[in-house]
């Protein structure tokens, strides 16, 4: 790892990456405000809300339970977007963004090794993966505290979901780093990442809502990030964590090897 590069990344990206953590916290707080009314009205709700409930696996957790409702900060698409952005901003910037702008040559000419570049950027995203993994937990706790429902929340199960979110963040960090190594500029890498994320969201929603297409879920990272199943205690938690951690390691390793082997930096 290169400390000078770390400091540079910190100055350029730390604020934006950290600010992403506010979103899941805000979602949790809003859930806390909405919860009393939702609890009263949940049985009367239909249509779109029923569909969302089924996506949040109302078959596993009672839809009028606080455990079901306060999982939303973990599963909300905005949370996923914040998680991905937080780790992808630095990794897409280096090396792909710098390559596209022409600053990469100057950075490497100082004596920085290509391997150091990948290792430092990837390590830089670790605290933000951790922060964004913990942010929904903090959001759920704040929301439950606002409405006095903390006693109804299984925080030990929520903490396990948080850990899975950290691993999901690490996976996207590794994936973004790999795409950044392969792409000629930041915009190309960002487009590739967006395509993969959209495909994953599509596969997750289709696989959850349509049992015949359940297989699709296992082809995406979201298939291994299952807040409702973990809270209900029916997830294969060890397998999911292993898949996410393994995929993150594979992406990171591939990025390291491919960057070293690139013909042109």
């Amino acid at each position: 790892m290169n400390r000078a590069l770390w400091r540079h990344l910190w100055r350029r990206h730390a604020l934006a990456s950290a600010l992403c953590a506010i979103l899941p916290v805000l979602i949790g707080a809003v859930m806390g405000i909405v919860w009393p009314e939702y609890r009263l009205q949940v049985k009367a709700m239909g249509g779109l809300v029923k569909f969302v409930q089924s996506l949040l696996r109302s078959d596993l957790l009672a839809p009028d339970s606080a455990a079901f409702f306060f999982q939303i900060p973990f599963a909300h698409p905005v949370t996923m977007l914040a998680l991905i952005l937080s780790v992808a901003l630095p990794t897409l910037a280096l090396p792909a963004g710098a390559r596209g702008r022409g600053t990469l040559d100057l950075l490497l000419a100082t004596g920085l090794e290509r391997r150091q570049l990948v290792v430092t950027t990837s390590l830089f995203t670790l605290p933000f993966a951790l922060l964004l993994g913990l942010a929904p937990l903090a959001g759920a706790w704040i929301g439950a505290s606002i409405t006095g429902a903390t006693a109804e929340i299984p925080f030990d199960a929520y903490a396990r979901v948080s850990f899975e979110a950290v691993l999901l963040g690490l996976f996207f960090s590794g994936l973004a780093q790999l795409l950044s190594v392969l792409a000629e500029d930041g915009a190309t890498a960002a487009r590739w990442l967006a395509a993969i994320v959209l495909w994953s969201l599509f596969a997750e929603i289709t696989g959850t809502g349509w049992p015949a297409a359940a297989l699709l879920k296992w082809l995406t990272p979201f298939g291994y990030y299952e807040p409702a199943q973990v809270i209900a205690g029916v997830a294969d938690y060890a397998r999911d964590c292993a898949v996410l951690a393994g995929a993150a390691a594979v992406c990171f390793g591939a990025a390291l090897v491919l960057e070293s082997r690139r013909r042109s930096a």
Binding site: G102, A109, T110, G111, L112, E113
Partner: peptide, 15 residues
């Protein structure tokens, strides 16, 4: 990197 540290480089398209 050890070798490149002994070199000063000014690229043509300075960014």
């Amino acid at each position: 990197g050890a070798l490149r540290r002994r070199i000063g480089y000014l690229p043509g398209d300075l960014a």
